[in-house]
Design a protein around this nucleic acid. Structure first.
Lengths: 121, 121
DNA sequence: CACGTATATGCTCTGTGGAGTATATAAAGG
DNA sequence: CCTTTATATACTCCACAGAGCATATACGTG
């Protein structure tokens, strides 16, 4: 399981990463929010930490885990050559993202230029 | 193996996808270029096609496979929330991409807009 | 110090994915 | 037709990842 892609192939790990986007969390908090067993959470966090996806700090008995975006950037880099391809299917993409924006928008995010998307305006 | 992420977790499948960026290819061509056994190629193509990553057309006895970017866009969508995070580590990203550019022997040093990288010549 | 809380880790079991080998299918070409 | 070429599929084997359970470790508090 060296590869970044294998790491994020696991649904629970993706869930953990997504959870950490909002703010850092302790193991127990993750455990409750994602309703996974404590050993399972700890094991996945171990994997994520070894792969550099998260970092932890000690707060007494608890460990606070926070995101480290670097490895995800590698995914983005791999994705890059395929983006050129999307232009062909751009309208489909637009529609898709609009759908996502709706279903995800618990907190008003005006979708911004997301680093690479066509200047939409 | 329903998830898009599990699909691209497999190195050979990623290789196939990357290969198809340049142009469509027959099974035999993929087999030779990636030096994988024919059944292995066919099986991975099956998975990729079922997941919508590729499409095929018949050319006599051979099947030509071409890329379909849609599923990869889902990966991009998932990645989106993390991008906001990268700004914090932007310089690290810059350095990282520079390393990648080098090791990939890209001629053009002028990297633009991040992510919006030029199609390889 | 003893106990409760928080997290990590070892061990076992099970499912599943990928490779290899052999074989089936199908089209082209003599 | 018979053969060659191109691709798909069935079957078996093996490795390995993830979950559960038990247990170890460590810190805080009375």
């Amino acid at each position: 399981m060296e590869s970044v892609f294998e790491i994020i192939a696991e649904p629970n790990r993706r869930a953990i990463l997504s959870l950490l986007v909002s703010s850092q969390q302790s193991v127990g908090e993750i455990e409750r929010q994602l309703r996974m067993s404590q050993p399972t959470v700890s094991k996945h966090l171990r994997v994520l930490r070894d792969a550099g996806f998260v970092e932890s700090t000690v707060d007494a008995q608890r460990r606070l885990y926070r995101l480290n975006p670097e490895p995800l950037q590698q995914v983005d880099v791999w994705l890059a050559p395929f983006r050129q391809f999307w232009s062909a299917h751009l309208d489909a993409l637009e529609r898709h993202l609009d759908r996502v924006d709706q279903s995800t928008s618990t907190k008003r995010k005006t979708r911004r230029k997301t680093t690479q998307r066509k200047p939409r305006t």
